[in-house]
Amino acid sequence: MASNRSGMQRIQSPCVGLCSTTVGDRVCRGCQRTDEEIRDWFALDADSRTQRMLALDTLRARVASRFLHVDDPACLEAQLVRHRIRFRADQPALSRAVELLRVGRTRMQDLSRYGLRRHASVAHLAPDALYAALNEALMQEASLRLTTAPTDPPV
């Protein structure tokens, strides 16, 4: 039996399995969606989901660019595959880097082996501290979306 009958597409989600909205956060620390976006995700049409995922990738890349530079996108992708970290083909490299740090921050030593380079302002930070700083900045920016993120699913 075909897994994709009638041209139906699998619904993509930015969920990374680390939902902090269940413990009261208004913005998820894992995927940076608002609690309303998470609640309404499957009611959104494909175009709306695609636009939201693009907005989240843009947010991650913008914030990550303050901390990191991707020197070798192919190396980064190879490491994501090697460590079985989920990513999308259309996902920007800096958004992918956020996922790599989230998953591997306690085991990584030399970021250049992953195609990444720290900015000079954070060169002294170990990968776990780098991720903590990046994630804090990401959550601050993501929280701003509470006032601008659409909250009603399409009818």
Rank of each mutant, 00 (worst) to 15 (best):
Y131Q: 09
V81L: 11
R118N: 04
R5P: 12
L116R: 07
A137P: 01
M8I: 15
D152K: 10
L134R: 02
L111R: 03
R86F: 10
C75H: 04
G104L: 15
H69W: 04
L56P: 00
D45G: 13
S48N: 10
R118M: 13
A89F: 10
M53V: 00
W41Q: 05
Y131T: 03
P153Y: 02
S65V: 06
D47Q: 14
A61Q: 01
T151A: 08
M108V: 14
T21P: 08
S112T: 15
G30L: 02
H119W: 00
L111P: 08
T151V: 12
R88F: 14
S13H: 04
L146F: 04
A43K: 12
R88K: 10
L68T: 09
H69Q: 15
A97Y: 07
A97H: 07
R82M: 07
R29Q: 12
M53N: 07
D35A: 15
D90R: 11
L146D: 00
P92C: 01
D47I: 12
A137Q: 11
C15P: 04
S65H: 06
D40K: 01
P92V: 01
M8C: 11
A2F: 04
D25I: 00
T50C: 08
S6T: 10
R86N: 09
L54G: 07
L100F: 11
F87I: 06
L18G: 00
L146T: 03
S13D: 02
G104C: 14
E77H: 09
Y131E: 11
L144S: 08
Y131H: 13
A142D: 01
T21R: 01
R39H: 11
W41I: 06
G30A: 03
R86A: 13
R96C: 15
C19V: 08
S6L: 13
L144K: 12
D45Q: 03
G104Y: 05
R33Q: 11
Q32R: 15
L146Y: 03
E37L: 07
A126E: 12
L144A: 12
P154A: 08
Y114Q: 03
A61V: 09
R82W: 05
R26K: 14
E77W: 00
H83Q: 12
T151H: 06
L18S: 11
M53T: 01
D47S: 14
R105D: 02
L59F: 05
M53G: 00
R88L: 13
S143E: 14
A137R: 08
P150V: 02
R96T: 06
R62T: 15
M1E: 11
L125C: 09
R86L: 11
A120Q: 09
A43Q: 14
Q51L: 14
L76M: 10
D47W: 02
E36N: 10
L80Y: 05
F42N: 15
V70Q: 06
R52S: 13
Q51G: 07
R49A: 09
Q91F: 01
W41G: 02
L80K: 05
D40E: 14
L18W: 14
G7K: 06
R33I: 04
R96V: 07
T21M: 07
A120M: 07
E77F: 00
T50N: 12
I85K: 04
S143Q: 13
L134D: 01
R39E: 07
P92K: 04
D71Q: 14
G30W: 03
R60S: 12
P150G: 00
V122I: 06
V103C: 01
V122K: 02
P127N: 06
A129Y: 02
